[in-house]
Amino acid sequence: MTAVIGDGGRSVVGLAPLLDPAARTDVRVRTISARRRRSDRAVTLALWAAAGIAVVPLVSVVVVLVAKGGHLLDGRFLTGDIPLLTGRAPAACRSISEAFRAKYDLDCAPPVPGVGPAVVGTLLSTAIGALLAVPLGVLGAIYLNEIGGSGRIARVIRFSADVMTGVPSIVMGMFVYTAWVVRFGTAGRSAFAAGLALACLMLPVVVRTSEEMLCLVPDHLRHANQALGGRRWQGVVRVVIPAALPGLTTGAMLAVARAAGETAPVLFTIGVTLRTNVSPSGGNTTLAQQIYDGARSGDPLANQMAWGAAITLVLLVFLLTALARLVSSRFSTRLDG
């Protein structure tokens, strides 16, 4: 450090004047001007405000969800079947004669809301989508980062993946509808068909995030493998993938969490059910679809169902995201030595 200090008529260089009590009185430390202090405070305040405003939508969504659907959340709601009768049904039912009701075993008790089948359907279709998209996506990313590099094929694939990421999700639904559902008719609508649509949606995201994660593995680890007489694939399997695993897992989990909340790809592809269907074939339903159907209905019970399904879905996505975070923090390894 070299201090240049003006001292009356003479100039002195170095730290010596600071140690000399006589000179020290002449040292003027430049203070921060009032203007700079003001602008510092203003910008800090503005940034705080911006951060605060950014949180408003999230908080208000959660507040509304809890207010409107919070009371519905219980074991019965989460596991119970979806009611066929709507909220208006009991009144209409009671106008039917006692004998008729007895004959057809009609129960005029008010229908109980439940989204059990939708919870199962959401988990099932998302799992199918993940099983299809994650392995394929990770393998594709390995090709792009470890083999393709900046070659032509890799560039084309990377560009297509980027374009596919931007394709609206309803287009994926349309694609699977025409390619799968139309071919197999009504029987084609199933959790599997919805899983296909979700896989199309997840695939480019998984490819690109996984590629980023593999790219973060430093080259010196690949070189170390080769210097020890390892082949390139042995390096990928024994060094690169283990080192990138936390990142790969997080990327996949986030893609899955996003897909779990998708509505559009599921609308045309999943069909309908009121009872829990754990099979990948046959009609099914998801929470997102229940929200869509319930919100469009003018029926108060259906509206309630929509709110209940919405808070359930938010909770589910929250859990998946939290799990992704946990996995990445638990198994994260420092890559630089």
């Binding site: 430093p218 010196h220 680890l221 070189h223 170390a224 493998n225 080769q226 210097a227 020890l228 007489g229 390892g230 042995q234 024994r238 060094v239 283990p242 080192a243 390894t333 420092r334 890559l335 030595g337």
Partner: peptide
């Protein structure tokens, strides 16, 4: 490369245990 080994400028151990770092080349072979 198996017979002519190399040590690099920057230490580059694998993000694995000490044991597994040393055993790495043996397992490859």
């Amino acid at each position: 490369r198996r017979r002519i080994g190399m040590v690099f400028q920057k230490p580059n151990p694998f993000p694995k245990s000490i044991y597994r770092n040393v055993a790495y080349g043996l397992k490859l072979a």
